[in-house]
Design a protein around this nucleic acid. Sequence first.
DNA 1: ATATTAAAAGATATTTAGGTCTTTTTATAT
DNA 2: ATATAAAAAGACCTAAATATCTTTTAATAT
Lengths: 148, 148
Amino acid sequence: MLSKSCVYALRAIVYVGHNGSENHKIGIKEIGEELDLPVHFLSKILQSLVKHNILQSTKGPHGGFYINEISGQIKLLRIIEVVDGLSFFHKCGLGMHECSDTHPCPLHDDFIVFREGLYKIFSTKTINDLVKKVEDGNAFIQNLNTKN
Amino acid sequence: MLSKSCVYALRAIVYVGHNGSENHKIGIKEIGEELDLPVHFLSKILQSLVKHNILQSTKGPHGGFYINEISGQIKLLRIIEVVDGLSFFHKCGLGMHECSDTHPCPLHDDFIVFREGLYKIFSTKTINDLVKKVEDGNAFIQNLNTKN
DNA sequence: ATATTAAAAGATATTTAGGTCTTTTTATAT
DNA sequence: ATATAAAAAGACCTAAATATCTTTTAATAT
């Protein structure tokens, strides 16, 4: 559904939101280690988020990633848009060029219910919503059996 | 979500169910042309379905693909299983190794609604259900603007 | 039996996603 | 000013999905 790049982005940004702040920035190495993600690959993804102003970073000593007020309120859908594009939310479940109420594929009616359900979730929830869940102990972004 | 191989498989099998029968078999070329699918690639996919007894075929003159009584009643999920595997229906939406009610990712509750909703559809509907929709003119499997 | 037709099988090519490694840039503390 | 630390950028590499082309096998009609 979402590409690896995209879920890496989401987890990383939530990690940064949870563990960092403007005066305690988080290094890419820490993120990669804590979330079991390939550091350099993740680095590319976060670079792109920074360019799109979804995430903030500074270089040099005590540099790293953080999110400001505004970024925390960004909707998940925006991140998906930047990383994967939004085609999933428009595409036919059976890959037909046109699939609509007037020319539906045999799964159209069933499929759009779920596709639009997801759309709703992603276009409603913000980074901060996820961070809060993690802070309240109601959700996790780190793997359980990270065997060290 | 579903791979191209998988949606090609579904559409092709519905096409065969709709247009063919044991004494009017459908050639791979016709399927590829009518559904705008790459013939040789599709051929591989259908070969695999034949091996798994989801589709029938015979070689030689007047040979081609068809589906028998039993195949028509096969659930869509079975085709997905054979082509893509079922991992999608068990996997975390954020790609975490373990994601369950006791160790949920921040999207867990929302995501399983979607994932299990789809599971229900795919594990309930049969090939024949889709064929019927097409036969009744309530759904289509061919592209609209197939520019010829 | 033979020719023909169509799927099966095999080999190879292309594209995209995912991942690694190295060098460059820039912010900061000294 | 300089050293240092960390992200940014660039160049590759690998694996998987998708696609094409060629050869082989097997049904059928003649």
